[in-house]
């Protein structure tokens, strides 16, 4: 390592070249080392431990007992009640991703195709504000709207189309959609904005009508945005905690609340650990499938 800081006056040979390369490589290693150590201590090891804990027996207070092992918590995932929570969470997350995409795509497309750059930037800022705004506050806004005195409830009652939605599954779904739509729009916007429009013109020139050109050219080329946006919406929807807690109440428990419950009032940490690992696994599988499918179908 010190070699380079002196004034070497030797000819080069493979040994010295390797030495210099090694010195450089150690420099990279030591640059990363603080972060590396931090992540090992506060991320990797905790991740391993939570997996281990999911096989531990539970003490009377709900804490894990290290040294006594059981498969109970993993078997418990098969309980009809637990299964329904998992399915409901995955279903809502999926539905939310789909609807966000359906709403978000034309929206992002509209913003990205405005003629004036000033207008585009202005609309983009309008998307960025909710994107960066406090999530809890945005969810709270719906709580008041959907409550008995809320504006949405009153409109529903006046038209006779719906009643008080707070603490129902549609309310949770609405909250998720509202919460994560901006996460879908931004990557879509970036992908569509970067599109080479000459390609669309080329398609039109080659006898594609507007719809064909969109389906054959624009849509496939914005695939990176679709994938990024879908992952950004699916992951937090699947683990949602604040939204179902504030808008769903006790009737629509999702995985996120269910896990928190195990650690707080439910007093079953090992089962909570098993659920946490499960949600991580579902997320990984979904992400991988999405990447694979996306690669083939679009």
């Amino acid at each position: 390592m010190t070699m380079l800081d002196e004034r070497p006056s030797e000819e080069a040979n493979p040994e010295l070249e390797r030495k210099a390369e090694r010195a450089e490589s150690w420099r990279g290693f030591f640059t990363a080392l603080p972060t590396y150590l931090y992540l090992v201590v506060f991320f990797v090891l905790p991740l391993i431990i939570i997996t281990v804990i999911s096989f531990a027996e539970r003490s009377r207070t709900g804490k894990p007992v290290l040294g006594e092992w059981t498969l109970d918590w993993w078997i418990k995932l098969g309980d009809p009640l637990v299964r329904s929570v998992v399915f409901r969470s995955v279903w809502l997350a999926f539905l939310n991703t789909l609807l966000s995409l359906l709403l978000g795509y034309p929206f992002a497309y509209w913003i990205a195709t405005r003629k004036s750059a000033l207008m585009r930037n202005f609309l983009l800022v309008l998307v960025l504000i909710p994107f960066w705004s406090n999530f809890l506050v945005r969810t709270y806004a719906w709580r008041t709207l959907l409550d008995s005195n809320g504006l949405v409830t009153k409109v529903g009652e006046m038209t006779g189309l719906w009643g008080k939605m707070l603490f129902t599954e549609p309310a949770v779904f609405l909250g998720l959609l509202y919460g994560y739509l901006p996460f879908m729009v931004l990557p879509l916007y970036a992908a569509i904005e970067h599109l080479d429009w000459n390609l669309v013109e080329a398609a039109r020139d080659l006898y594609a009508d507007a719809r064909k050109a969109f389906i054959k050219v624009t849509l496939p080329l914005s695939k990176p945005g679709i994938i990024a946006g879908s992952i950004l919406v699916f992951i937090p929807s699947l683990g949602a905690y604040v939204t179902p807690d504030l808008l769903g109440g006790s009737k629509t428990t999702l995985l996120g609340n269910y896990i928190v419950t195990q650690f707080k009032s439910g007093r079953n940490w090992p089962f909570g650990a098993a659920l946490s690992v499960t949600i991580l696994a579902i997320m990984m599988v979904a992400t991988i499938i999405y990447f694979r499918k996306g690669g083939k179908t679009l």
Binding site: P64, P236, I259, F263, A273, S276, I279
Partner: peptide
């Protein structure tokens, strides 16, 4: 997912 992260840090 945030809940997994929270749970594992709590246990840790």
């Amino acid at each position: 997912p945030e809940v997994t992260m929270g749970a594992m840090l709590l246990i840790w």
